[in-house]
Design a protein around this nucleic acid. Sequence first.
RNA 1: GGGGGCGUAGUGCAGCGGCUUAACACGCCGGCCUGUCAAGCCGGAGAUCGCGGGUUCGAAACCCGUCGUCCCCGCCA
Length: 561
Amino acid sequence: MKRTHFAGSLTSRNVGEEVVLQGWVHKIRNHGGVMFLDLRDSEGITQVVWPDNVKGEGVDLLLNLKSEDVVEVKGTVRIRPIGSINPKMRTGEVEILCEKLSLINKSQPLPFEITKEKEVEEPLRLKYRYLDLRRDSLHRNIKARSVISRLVRDFFHKEGFVEVETPILVKNTPGGARNYLVPTRFGSGRFFALAESPQIYKQLLIISGFDKYFQLARCFRDEDPRADRQPEFTQIDVEMAFIQEEDVRDIVERLFSLLWQEMQGIILKRPYKILTYEESMERFGTDKPDVRFELEIIDVTDYFRDSRINYLRDSPYVGGILVKDAKKISRKYLKEYEDFVKGIGGKLINLPVKELPKFLNASPNDLFLILGGEKKSTLERLGFLRKRIIEIEELKPSTKFEPIWIKNFPLFELDQEGKLTSKHHPFTSPLEEDISLFGSNPLGIRARAYDIVVNGVEIGGGSIRIISQEIQKKVFEVLGLGVKEVEDKFSFLLKALNYGAPPHGGIALGFDRLVANLLGEESIREVIAFPKMTSTYDPLTDAPSSVDPEQLKKVYLRVEE
RNA sequence: GGGGGCGUAGUGCAGCGGCUUAACACGCCGGCCUGUCAAGCCGGAGAUCGCGGGUUCGAAACCCGUCGUCCCCGCCA
């Protein structure tokens, strides 16, 4: 028989219709004389009923049905008897009076319950992902993700963007994230890398004369996964010609307005706040602040210049956060603060209120937490402290979603060995007025780079690119890349820039993070159909796995024990 | 590479200042039940307490080690 309806989509409009449903046994409730079967398909659940001492074709089958068996039900849609309507179900007004039940396929007993939304250990969920995906919340998330990707695609197409697929097998250009290497039978000892991002290709596309490009691009990075990071992920990759920073902000803000409107029914206020990197660090101690909380870092270095307390007097920088009306000033909560502050290398000092700066307007109910030390690291620690305060005090955000821009990132930063590296990537344009600093103070050069941050989560970042060969050379010089090295890694891009490259720039948005944010999920694994564990292992398929030596030989590899 | 949390029936958990037959809920199996939808009632099976070692008359519990997992730092041009 052919299926006529989805179980999840029946309403009182279907009353009286003869329907055929196919789906899974979600739940059976056997009351002796009357039996109920909750039949589930991809759209939802409908109650099937056998009243009056259970009769009809296939009833003997019914008594042996188990959870997740696949069945077909033929019957008539009817309004439920008075008093038995279930307002919690979408189809709760109706039920199917079953005329014929048949079994399509049996199911083994399950490793965990599909009908319950209770937490199950993630490794088990991942091992049986196909069962986990049947569960309501994940199922809905994956469908919502599909809707969001359609909205994104439609948006960019309407805006005149060209969607282009760029290679995933790319040239290995070490320097940033660790690449996944791909050996090949062609050419002994040569490798492809999996693309960490389409960065270079999208710039080449702009040079190719495509005015606006976008792609939902798969990217691969051999780095440690986190709740918000997977070894493979998707980004909305965007690049535009003849534009400035504000054009990128405009397109992203309009996309976000659409997404939040459609998915959340929320109108986001535009334009978003813009903070410079420096401002963000000084006020929030991070380059991805959650600005829905007012708590800001207060610079009290000068105030404590003559303090009797050495720690405050001698620190090159002293900053504090005032927790207004800290209702929880009790030993227990102070201990939490103390432990946390100790953990980030500070200490909690008891100061009488009269020793606090007057401009704080602190009252005896307030808590002023102070950290001192070298400025940059102290600000970062204050940033962590700020997040902890929000948790401990259980502060309520001022609004549900607040995206902001952070701009003017430093062009360079120091890595662990004290070497200068690109903060964003080496094709990021410096601010015009900072170009003179290349010789004297490269760390002081600000970049035409920007991040979009939503509720303290970095959703994306981008920049206006360098099109001047001269400036590009200066950047490579600062990075300590020799002519030969540059030639080897990037010659194709540099050559391309010589043939009339238009001014251009763009952004890459983390699609998984964006979807998670829109759906209120903490972990991107809740919006990815088949994610990997934090060890990059996939318990579903048992990957990565070892490879036959013969196969290795063909790609000129040998595994060392 | 480092720090922290967790690891006890199929699932989720209790027990972790050494007295237990290792508790409870869901699921599973059997029975009853005519309107449930977290169905209800009665009964049952199911756990070498992640693994290894140690302390002890006695360890799920205490100690050491190890493995796994989750969160965080590093890392993520």
